[in-house]
Design a protein around this nucleic acid. Structure first.
Lengths: 233, 233
DNA sequence: GTCTATAATATGATAGAC
DNA sequence: GTCTATCATATTATAGAC
């Protein structure tokens, strides 16, 4: 009793949008406008949730940022919680993409190197997604646990097998694949999530190309340096 | 307007505690009881803030967890915000301690190795502190920015100089000291902050000694592997 | 110091006109 | 679909008795 949002009592109410067609061609336009509006609202919500937390953000703030009225927003999303869920779901998709596209080239170093770069670019270009994901997981991921358990788990396991086979082939020094993956996630996402601290200490951020490059170089050096086989001619 | 907590309008009201002494020896006891109560409340607040966020936690929940009444809590802390500030300040002290005690032994690898271990133990033993610090920084650290700018900055700069001197002496391979420090923070704190995700993927957590040891070993291997000079006999 | 009201207000959500 | 009230409630904080 007396909680803010418990991520449970959700009954989607207005998921069916009016399907009547008046003139041919009008429907598509209508759908697009609606989609844009939903998109605008979700983007605004993402930014604000990442900045103030879910409970620190009001529907009115989101509406203002999305340039709609509060009640209009609640016409498009049944409730604040429903909006949050949709934002999180969309976010997760963006967030798992790099791992899915983790192409396993012949050379493990090239593969991991590419993955690190993709992740660091994601931190640079989608900091709000990174931060909201971070906060959600830190708080116990009440809404994500299901998704984290099945899909992520399988995805990670597949990569773990690849890494282990590299190690068996002597292409990589022995290392625990799970910790390797966690370390890559941790460091690359740190540049987005802790950017305020990084900025306080260095005065720089990832949008400065020089800083981005030095970060990328260092991360690669640290992560890959410990697992690159020495040349033994 | 219409925000939850803006971290500004704070005038500490009840900082002076009654100083009248009735019997000798009673005062100390009284102070201790008071301190214990404040401690209890702050501990409860820390745990709940870390789990539900500041705005997701009500004063009543904290009071319940701290085993005091709501109004009694507000007798000890002028406001929820004031409580939050005190929690954060105490937290920061705990959080900066390892960096302060970053003893610079002769051997850089031993020094860094020890620092990594301390940080990982901190993640294991003080996950709530880690999480709340994380959330605060992710959200822009409105309350911490001052502290982060001066004290942390100087502390880091001192360590950076040490690391650079090691590099000059050839005891360490060239590496950007800032990124090195960030990487250590990122990985070690990740085990506390993202423990839910780590647990979802591996089924394990830092309290299992075997998992702690494998994490420690891997982190050392990754961080130190890329900066340990090769033996060139 | 502690408790029981209760004030003051912020905020999510709905009703109903247009 | 959109807007203007407005409701209902949760929640911080205070007043005042004991």
């Amino acid at each position: 009793m007396a909680k803010r949002m418990t991520s449970s009592n959700n009954q989607t109410k207005r998921s069916e949008k009016s399907t009547r067609v008046f003139k041919p061609g009008t429907q598509k336009k209508r759908d697009e406008a609606l989609k844009n509006k939903r998109q605008r609202i979700m983007n605004a919500a993402l930014t604000l949730f990442a900045k103030y937390g879910v409970n620190g953000t009001t529907v009115e703030q989101i509406a203002e940022a999305g340039e709609v009225s509060k009640s209009n927003l609640l016409y498009y999303f049944a409730s604040k919680e429903q909006l949050y869920i949709e934002v999180i779901q969309h976010l997760l998709e963006v967030w798992l993409r790099p791992l899915k596209s983790f192409e396993t080239h012949q050379d493990p170093i090239a593969t991991l190197s590419e993955y690190i770069e993709i992740k660091l670019k994601l931190s640079r270009d989608h900091p709000a997604e990174s931060k909201l994901f971070c906060m959600e997981v830190v708080q116990g991921a009440p809404l994500l646990l299901n998704e984290l358990e099945s899909p992520l788990c399988e995805l990670v396991e597949a990569k773990v097998k690849v890494i282990n086979s590299w190690i068996e082939q002597g292409k990589l020094l022995p290392v625990d694949p799970y910790h390797l993956i966690f370390s890559i996630w941790a460091i690359t996402q740190h540049y987005a999530d802790f950017n305020v601290q990084i900025n306080a200490v260095t005065g720089k951020d990832l949008h400065q190309p020089a800083f981005f490059n030095s970060a990328l170089k260092s991360v690669k050096q640290l992560i890959l340096g410990g697992i690159t086989p020495r040349m033994t001619i």
